Amino acid sequence: MRTKTETKRQAILDVAADVFREMGFERASMSEICSRVGGSKATIYNYFTSKEELFFEVVLQATEAEFEAAHLALDPQGPDMAATLEDYGRRLLGLLYKPDVRAVRRLVVSEAGRSGLGLRTYEIGPQKDESRVAVFLSEAMAQGRLREADPVVAARHLRALLESEWLDRFLLQVIDTVSEEDIASGVHRAVAVFLSAYGVGATL
């Protein structure tokens, strides 16, 4: 029964991905998704409580591999700390500013106060990222490659620096896209600031 349930859930996600791609989020409807999947709306709502949640799950599934790849860039044996952090930063921001992920981020912000979508997004996105980066930074501190500090706080500082040049303007829709060139140069500056604070010999 569990296999059947998971198969049905995946079928809904596959169909929803097609509908969202063809119609966009606003025009897509649960009725349209239901008609293509077959069965009743109640069946879909047994798996996903809202169109927003379904949309989020579709994008999460589509971007999971890139999210994992960003963290694989954090090689504790990498010879150049700046290069390692820049590789991670470029991968992470390249993902966060992809068109479908941009849409989800704005959607989550607008829906966070009306549903549990904000907390769920935080747990499987920023919180998960923070934990993995903190582990990497803790190892680097233990190896003497960064100064001793709270690795969780350091991870938060790194994430904030990486998006510092765009985040407010992006969320308020002053800007929409960020080019690869802007990401690369922004990440380079962010990592330089981070290492000036957390590099060996730095003090706060």
Rank of each mutant, 00 (worst) to 15 (best):
G125A: 14
F67T: 12
K51Q: 05
V58H: 10
A155K: 02
L117F: 05
L95S: 07
L93N: 08
S131Y: 04
N46I: 00
K98Y: 08
P99T: 06
R102F: 01
L92A: 11
S115C: 09
A62H: 04
D87N: 09
A140M: 15
G116T: 09
M141N: 03
A155L: 03
K98L: 14
R156M: 11
R105T: 14
A70C: 10
Q143P: 01
L93E: 01
M81K: 01
V59H: 05
E64F: 08
L92S: 06
Y122S: 06
L137N: 02
L60I: 01
E130L: 15
E53V: 12
G78Q: 08
Y47G: 10
K98F: 08
V101H: 09
L74R: 05
E139Y: 00
N46S: 14
S110T: 12
V59A: 12
F56E: 11
T49H: 14
R90V: 14
K51I: 06
A142G: 13
L158H: 05
M81Y: 01
T84Y: 03
L137F: 05
R120S: 13
G113D: 11
D129Y: 08
R132H: 13
M141I: 08
R102D: 11
E64L: 15
G125V: 12
Y47R: 11
K51S: 06
S110Y: 00
A134E: 05
L96M: 15
A149H: 08
A73H: 04
Y88P: 03
T63E: 10
V104L: 13
Q61G: 15
K51L: 06
F67I: 11
A69E: 11
A73K: 09
R132Y: 10
D150P: 07
Q61A: 15
A69H: 09
D75H: 05
V133F: 02
R120G: 15
K41E: 07
G118S: 06
A70N: 06
P79S: 13
L60Y: 11
M81W: 01
R102A: 08
E111H: 04
A73G: 03
L85N: 12
L158Y: 03
V153E: 08
V152H: 04
A82V: 01
E139A: 14
L92R: 12
L95N: 07
K98R: 15
A149W: 03
T84K: 06
V135P: 01
Y47K: 12
L119I: 11
Q77S: 12
V58W: 10
V101P: 02
V133K: 01
L92Q: 11
E57F: 10
R120M: 13
Y122G: 04
L93P: 03
D150G: 06
